[in-house]
Simulated scan of single mutants.
Amino acid sequence: MYQEERLEFIIDFLKKHNRISVEQICSLLDVSRDTARRDLVRLEKEKKIVRTRGGAILPSVHNEVKNYTNRLHTVTAEKKMIGNKAASLIYPGDRVILDTSTTVQACAEQIENMECTIITNSINQAEVLSSKPEIDIQLLGGKLQKEHRFLYGSTVIEKLSEYYVDKVFIGVVGISENGLTIAHEEDGLVKRKMIQQAKQVIVLADHTKLGNTDFFRFADLRDIDLLITDTTPQKEFRELLRKNNVELLTADFEEGEE
């Protein structure tokens, strides 16, 4: 077998089994330990593997978080369903915080024109709501994150500390046993403060976010009151929610029960 064929075999094996040892390479490909090591050295130089003691693993893959405008172009029907369900939970007279996520924007777009107060650090949410004359909008001032179109920093957090609201709607990149996570720390710090100021914490997350963990943890599962998602999660995830006293609401009107 030529080296190129061996390298392709090793990568395919790693994709299926996550790791491979030198002994496995020798046995499966009928080569010497020196040949196995040379193959691993080459794959490492090509940045296709990470060498470990006695073998190799695949490198970690981090999905790039697209800028806000690009993410808006990929708002799915599932996110719109979640947004519709979330908007139905806002009532006249409510005082509400909306964060900067595209799923929360799907909520903002579907809020009825009624007397309520919306606080946000998202210039997109403020723009969407500005077409609804009955809604009072409080836009938090701070430093502008141009790529993702949100305001952040100490002035945003200080101003948030002055408000006490009925509900906060939060988007995430990941929600798992590790808590609520996001790609950017500055965004996460603002979300953390938003959660502290609300009587009810409502997380909006489509099924692709469930079980995932991203870079910065801004809250624990026990900090959430309600999770709105698009499909009923697997049993293990539902058990995780129950242990942390998180209610589950699915946008397709299922109860999320066994």
Rank of each mutant, 00 (worst) to 15 (best):
R42E: 11
F215L: 11
D166P: 10
P92L: 00
N124L: 11
I10L: 09
S154H: 00
L129I: 04
Q105M: 15
Q3I: 12
E257R: 11
V172D: 10
H184S: 14
T213F: 13
T102G: 10
H62G: 03
V165H: 07
G55Y: 01
T250L: 12
R149S: 13
L40H: 07
V41A: 07
N113P: 14
N245M: 08
N212C: 03
Y164N: 11
D230G: 01
G142D: 05
M1I: 14
V173T: 09
S21F: 02
E177N: 07
P133F: 04
I25Y: 02
K47R: 11
A106Y: 12
V246N: 11
G153W: 03
K79P: 05
I97E: 06
E257D: 05
C107L: 14
L98A: 04
G179E: 06
S27E: 10
L129V: 11
G142L: 04
R53D: 14
V50M: 04
R51V: 07
E185G: 00
R217A: 15
G54H: 11
A219P: 12
R51K: 09
C107A: 10
L43T: 02
R19E: 13
E5I: 15
E258G: 13
C26W: 09
L144G: 13
L43H: 03
K159N: 03
N245T: 15
D206Q: 07
I170L: 08
G174N: 13
D225P: 02
E115N: 14
Q145W: 10
D94K: 07
A126Y: 01
S161P: 01
N178R: 11
G83P: 01
H73S: 15
Y152P: 08
E78T: 03
V156T: 03
F253L: 09
D187F: 01
N18F: 03
N70V: 05
I10V: 14
E112H: 06
R242G: 11
M81D: 06
D39Q: 06
R217E: 13
L180E: 12
S32N: 08
F218T: 01
Q234C: 14
T76V: 13
R19I: 04
V203K: 01
F9P: 05
K48R: 06
T155H: 07
F9M: 06
N113D: 15
I10P: 09
T76P: 13
Q196H: 10
T213G: 13
V156I: 01
I123G: 15
T52C: 09
T231Y: 02
V190F: 04
N63T: 03
E134N: 09
K47W: 09
Q197L: 08
T74N: 14
A56M: 01
F253K: 08
I10Q: 06
H62R: 08
H62Q: 09
F216K: 05
L249W: 08
I224F: 06
E78H: 08
E46P: 05
K85Q: 13
I123K: 08
E236I: 08
G188H: 04
E158W: 02
T232C: 08
K79N: 04
G179Y: 00
V172N: 02
N70T: 11
Q197K: 07
L204I: 03
